[in-house]
Amino acid sequence: MEVRTIKVFTTVDNINLHTQVVDMSMTYGQQFGPTYLDGADVTKIKPHNSHEGKTFYVLPNDDTLRVEAFEYYHTTDPSFLGRYMSALNHTKKWKYPQVNGLTSIKWADNNCYLATALLTLQQIELKFNPPALQDAYYRARAGEAANFCALILAYCNKTVGELGDVRETMSYLFQHANLDSCKRVLNVVCKTCGQQQTTLKGVEAVMYMGTLSYEQFKKGVQIPCTCGKQATKYLVQQESPFVMMSAPPAQYELKHGTFTCASEYTGNYQCGHYKHITSKETLYCIDGALLTKSSEYKGPITDVFYKENSYTTTIK
């Protein structure tokens, strides 16, 4: 009895394709271990004539594949690729409408935090270190965002349907971005203890939790000093293409032309909904596939993004 075979390709990165001759009487799992086709788990399936010449994702289970996976995804987590594939199996079914010149995501599976993050990423200057993220990001900007969303979920250790947080998501993504040249110098002034300067680099240099107003941050924000008295913390120097200011959701007025974009969060910790506000020729609110415009805006804002380049204080 002759062994019926077909020729397929296996890959971990969709760049390096490895030619395989597979036995049609055995499952993919018996031949390769966990195997995925377009995100779908085909591990328990036997090869079919229609699979001839198709590319299958496999887990990096030998040295060659491990090197290829690390170079593309910059992670050695053995569960990463499987999590990416199972997320992709959902995100490829989502709709990605162009809204006001940006790629958004039609609401499904509690994905409003991903839509808000995706919209924000198209408006701030950011370059990702893992080629996987950078490639998928370019495709997302062009309207094909399924891979990018699935990668975000995998890097953030999230599953489809789980509630997510924009600030946490951005923080994970910033860790995989090139923020080497970003720098922030802060000064804390206390009447009792004097003053202390701190220099922050990388992710810490672009994120701040405690106030939404970048102007206020430049002037000074009140913080408790270690001595128990009130101290003032203010920005001395900022070198970065953008800054992200966050605070627990509270009524906040966004003035046209003073910011790049913002995240609105309605609801409580267990259950809520994100919308995205962007400042173009007027203010726009993007909620999944829905767009509304207004000249002014007041609502429960939790993150505001500002364009920056270089700032030095005039406070002496």
Rank of each mutant, 00 (worst) to 15 (best):
Q270K: 09
Y208S: 10
D41W: 02
A262Q: 00
Q134C: 10
F305A: 00
Q222A: 09
P60S: 08
H276T: 07
N129S: 06
K307G: 01
M207S: 05
G220W: 03
M26S: 14
S181M: 12
A289H: 15
G101C: 03
P300N: 12
Q123W: 07
G228E: 04
F128L: 02
V243T: 00
F80D: 02
Y311F: 12
E2H: 05
P131M: 06
A87I: 05
Q98Y: 12
D41T: 11
Q134D: 02
I286R: 02
Q195S: 15
T19L: 12
A145C: 08
T76Y: 09
T198P: 04
I105Y: 03
Q237P: 02
N129I: 05
Q20G: 12
M24T: 11
T258D: 10
L65G: 12
Q30I: 08
L153F: 03
G299N: 07
G220V: 03
V160P: 07
I315G: 14
N61D: 08
E253Y: 11
D303V: 04
K106W: 12
V42I: 13
E168Y: 06
N110F: 06
V221F: 05
P130I: 02
V12D: 01
Y137G: 04
I315S: 15
I301D: 08
K92R: 12
A150T: 03
G82V: 14
T313Y: 15
L118I: 10
L200I: 10
R167W: 04
V221N: 10
L163S: 10
S25Y: 10
A108Y: 08
G220C: 03
G228F: 07
K183I: 10
C149V: 14
G33C: 07
G194H: 03
K219F: 03
N89V: 14
I6N: 08
N61T: 13
Q238I: 02
G29T: 08
T312K: 09
V3F: 14
Q237N: 10
L65Y: 08
E204N: 08
R139A: 14
E296N: 14
A247V: 06
M170S: 03
T64D: 15
V236P: 00
C261D: 03
D23C: 13
G33I: 08
Q175S: 13
K92W: 09
I315A: 15
A250D: 12
R167H: 02
M85L: 11
I15D: 11
D77F: 06
I223K: 04
Y172K: 14
E125G: 13
Y155Q: 00
L119R: 01
M24H: 08
R141H: 09
M24S: 12
L119G: 10
Q31K: 12
K158Q: 04
K298Q: 13
S279W: 00
H276G: 00
D63A: 05
N178I: 01
L102A: 00
T292L: 07
Q222E: 11
G288L: 01
C261L: 09
A154N: 04
D62W: 09
K7W: 10
T19C: 10
S86F: 13
S295R: 10
N157T: 08
L283I: 15
M170H: 05
K307R: 12
A142S: 13
N100L: 15
P300Y: 15
K191T: 13
Y155V: 06
Y252N: 00
Y113I: 04
Q20A: 10
D38C: 11
T192P: 03
N49H: 12
C149L: 09
T198F: 15
V8N: 10
D77M: 08
T43Q: 08
N147H: 14
E308Q: 07
K183P: 02
A262G: 04
A177G: 03
Y96Q: 00
E215I: 01
E239N: 06
Q222S: 11
I277A: 11
L114G: 07
K93M: 01
G143C: 01
L88D: 00
L254W: 01
G101S: 03
T159A: 14
H48A: 14
Y274L: 10
F174V: 03
Y252W: 10
D41Y: 05
Y265K: 04
V166S: 04
D287F: 02
E125V: 05
V304C: 03
C182N: 02
L81F: 13
D180A: 10
V188C: 08
Y96D: 01
P60F: 09
T10S: 10
D135I: 08
K93T: 11
C271Y: 12
K255F: 06
R139H: 08
D13K: 00
T292I: 05
A177T: 04
G101P: 03
